[in-house]
Structures are given as C-alpha cells and as structure tokens.
Amino acid sequence: MKIACIIPAYNEEKNIVTAIQEVQPFVDEVVVVDDGSSDQSASLAQAAGATVLRHIINRGQGAALRTGTQYALETGADIIIHFDADNQFHAEEIPSLLEPLRHQEADAVLGSRFLEKRSQLPWDKRYIIMPLARLVNRLFFGVRLSDPQSGFRALSRKTASQIQITNDGMAHCSEILYQLFKYRQRIKEVPITVTYHHYGQKFSGGLKIISDLIIQKIIK
C-alpha cells in the first residue's frame, strides 16, 4: 500500500526540512508542491529527499493540493495525506489517520482540533470563528463535523479521485468536506494536536472563504 503525503509550501524555507523529516518515517513518498516560492523552499525540500513539484506562479494552497493530489494519483498512491509545511501539525499522529483507511472503516479521515482539547487555539478562534465556520458549513453544505477547517486529512485513492478541488485558496477545506458529504463517503474524525506558531486564518479570511465558495458555485 503506497502512502503519499502532499505538503504545499510557499516561502517555507525555515520549516520545510523539519516537516519533511518528521513525515518521512510514516509515508512512502513526501510530495512538496512549491507554490511559486521566492526562497529556497524547493531546493531544500529536494535535498531532504522529497519529490518536488514547482508551480511557476503562486496559486494558493488549494491549487497546490490539487496538483499534489493529481501527481500522487498518477504515480499510484493508495492513500493520500494532506499536511502543512509550517510544522503546526504533528507527524507522529499520521498513523492514527491511516488506521481507519487501512482497516477500510472509512474513505476519508479528518484530523480534528476539537475532539480532544490538545490544541491551544486562540480563544476567539475556539469560541467565535470556528463555531461560525461550523454553522456556515452546516447551513450551506450540510456538513456536520467538529472541525470545519482542518487541513490535516487522509484520503483513500478512490475518494481522492472523486473529489475535485476547484478553490485555489483556503476555501478548499470547506469544499473538500462538502464533496465528501455529497459523494456519501465514509468519514471518520480523529483527534489531532495543532501547535500554533502564528495566528493563521483571521475573521476576514473566513469572509473571503465564504465569498470564494459562492463565486466558485456560480462559475461552475
């Protein structure tokens, strides 16, 4: 069973090597999608032993994940993991995401920051932004999950080929969840730990996600 881990990276030269080294023991191939970085992310990732795909221009995390997932499918991956380059996720939690897929108990396993209170989320994210995002997902997409915006997930080959990421930016998270529900995939959430090195998505980012989702729906 071939396991590929996709790591989108944009100007992540400070973190990318650590991220790759931490992930490598748990997967067969680490695929770094360098999303038009102007720093040394790509060369460092290559030297660290990752397969590097280079976007000639910056297109966003969703676009990078789409490229990486497509590559993984073309090269015969059976399980595809989406992971972040900024060392917020803990690679040692990858086996707990893989377990339900290996035992064919789920088609998609999603990391959740809310199942156990391991992650130290900023209070406004925990009590305002995330509950609002959860509400938007529930009302507009019928998605009922504890974590509305987790980027740490593992997909079976069949599920990854079914899902079409059309949002280039951060809206891909909601889009993936929506499609998982739409195609009636078996979803399992597992607790993950997220260590915040920076604030990340702000409230304005949340509004942009909603507007991107609406625009994509119209132009489809």
Binding site: V33, L53, R54, H55, I56, I57, R59, G60, A63, R66, T67, Q70, Y71, E74, T166, D168, I219
Partner: peptide, 14 residues
C-alpha cells in the same frame, strides 16, 4: 480567468 490560469499552471507543473 484565475481558474484557467491555475489549470495551465498545474498542467505545466505535472
């Protein structure tokens, strides 16, 4: 246009 640009970008990358 952005969507088309991303598709071209992905095609070139792969």
């Amino acid at each position: 246009l952005e969507r088309d640009l991303s598709q071209i970008n992905q095609h070139l990358t792969l």
